[in-house]
Design a protein around this nucleic acid. Structure first.
Lengths: 333, 333
DNA sequence: GCGCGACATCGGCAATCGTCGTCATGACCC
DNA sequence: GGGTCATGACGACGATTGCCGATGTCGCGC
């Protein structure tokens, strides 16, 4: 490996001068600077970031800790974060926790050892405990979670409002009897989505009997079994709200298997707007999470905090939006 | 930040001793060692990886450069690599190139500066040029590409065989007239898949007229437009081979839109077996790429090379497999 | 039984990795 | 002589590691 000393020798100057021309950190005679630059090019010199970071006390690296990069939602978020980080001059270390608090802790420790400048964390339900142990030694942004602490910001999605949008839309279509497939009870999102949905019904003077709600796990097959159960215990429903798209897709396949036509005999609204929501038939009407904004806003908050670590902690709330496709129809008389 | 010197002072020993107890690098009086360990715990000391790496000349970090982490195939591969790396004590830096040679080069430079121990690279069609400029300063594993060089290994998928499997399967079902939706001509995979497919037909004495092949871009909407075109220029086909699942899904939706029943009136085989292949209706019969193996084999090759950098370069060829679901049926008389 | 050297055990000093920033130095001009 | 200006020397940054010194143990020869 060629070092700054090699360059200095080659150009006939001191290492300090080489450093200063690279970083434009003080004036150097144009002629000398040129000699240095051509030495750099000739030797194909690439400065060692480790040494630089050790010296400067910053690594230009951010840690990203998510439950599962194979989940398209997190994959998209990771992609956005990586992109936004890149333009700001940062690289990202990717970590998958599987939602395990133990793995989260181990990763956090590794990341701290690597002296990351900042952390973006989509944590487990137990995130508070995990997190407080390491806090607040590094600026962090939480995704879809909140924690009361200095130098920790949050990017939140208004799940309640998303659920409300779904409810109001189906009510507007004239539906009266609804089914719901919920996500995990201990997630940060599902209860809020359900709550918003119920509020929309109540505003219209409608209610949601307990037998019309089946909780599941946010997965495709979970959606399938939940739909089976729903059809058994809540006959006569004409509209379904699935708390995420994957479960909506599962429900869609069992309906098709049973010969029930969507949307004619059953309207379906999902949540998330994953890329595959358009690949179903009919394409899925759903509540879109602003995925690209989640990533870019998170990075933006982090950058601001790196600029001014003492600012009060902030929370950014992003609005979901209804995207109409073809899985819903007006209720039939 | 607390340093090794703090620990040494607290425990009343030298920094050398602290280092030796942490790394078990020579015998230390049990009593002393215990004092050091409790000092570490008391101060919540976490060694600075930068300094360690600078000194040791290894970072326990691998770079992963893929076209797009939002693509479920690469997202899964990334997940697997991250997992396998973690158990081996490595963390991964994720980079998205969008297939742009320029971005690839810039990332490679950043990764080299960060002194990664190894690289896993799913490169663009222009990878050879990009790569040779930086080569062979770091051990690397190429995904789905080959390059003739020392200390560069490859993990390949036998796309030709995959295409052959698809062809033989459809031929076995009694089909005679086929349509094909191809991927990009300059990809490493699509031409091979097509070639294998054609070979299977030839073995059965069947042929594939040029008008029955439409090239596309591996995306969902690309699959849609290709299918439209195919129906216009190749009427009478009863079986379709789409060179990836996304395009197969696109084709599926246009068929449904036109009221053609799958699989009764049209059989479809995809390629990749992305997680969403089961979410369509009917579930998609497809040629599965061994995603998890790609990731784990890549890491394993890399680890072996880190162990013995001088070994001759190796290529590992992974076999795809047919997974039968419900999008194919026997040809009707 | 005693004295002395060989050897093992354990801990500390200081060099080192590559870079950056501060202080110092010499040249030059007014 | 004092003030610029361009550049060089040098000491961190935080850990690892080769080398050396201090202490203790043991064996051997007389």
């Amino acid at each position: 490996m060629t070092t700054i000393a090699d360059v200095a020798r080659y150009a006939g100057v001191s290492v300090a001068t080489v450093s200063h021309v690279m970083n434009r950190t003080r004036h150097v005679e144009p002629e000398t600077a040129e000699r240095v630059r051509s030495a750099i090019a000739a030797l194909r010199y690439n400065p060692n970031s480790l040494a630089r970071s050790l010296r400067r006390g910053e690594t230009k690296t951010i840690g990203l800790l998510v439950p599962d990069n194979a989940n398209p939602f997190f994959a998209s978020v990771a992609r956005q974060i990586e992109d936004a980080g890149f333009v700001a001059g940062y690289t990202v270390i990717l970590c998958n926790s599987d939602g395990s608090a133990e793995k989260e802790e181990r990763y956090l420790q590794v990341l701290m050892a690597k002296q990351i400048d900042g952390l973006i964390f989509a944590g487990s339900s137990d995130h508070a405990r995990v997190f407080s142990s390491l806090l607040p030694s590094v600026p962090a942004v939480l995704l879809d979670r909140e924690i009361h602490s200095v130098n920790v910001d949050s990017v939140l999605v208004d799940h309640d409002h998303g659920g409300y949008l779904a409810g109001r839309y189906l009510v507007g279509l004239g539906h009266k009897k609804f089914g719901v497939i919920g996500g995990p009870r201990d997630s940060s999102s599902s209860p809020a989505r359900l709550q918003g949905f119920v509020r929309a019904l109540q505003e219209a003077g409608l209610d949601l009997p307990a037998s019309s709600v089946v909780d599941s796990d946010y997965h495709f097959v979970g959606g399938r079994v939940a739909m089976e159960q729903l059809m058994a215990q809540a006959p006569g429903i004409t509209a379904l709200f699935a708390c995420n798209d994957l479960m909506a897709m599962g429900a869609l396949t069992v309906l098709r298997g049973r010969g029930l036509r969507v949307p004619d005999e059953m309207s379906i609204v999902g949540f998330d707007d994953i890329p595959y929501a358009v690949t179903t038939w009919p394409p899925l009407t759903t509540i879109a999470q602003p995925v690209e904004k989640i990533g870019t806003r998170a990075v933006s908050l982090l950058m601001q905090r790196l600029g001014g670590p003492e600012a009060p902690s902030r929370r950014e709330i992003l609005a979901p939006a209804l995207v109409e496709r073809e899985s819903c129809a007006p209720a039939r008389k």
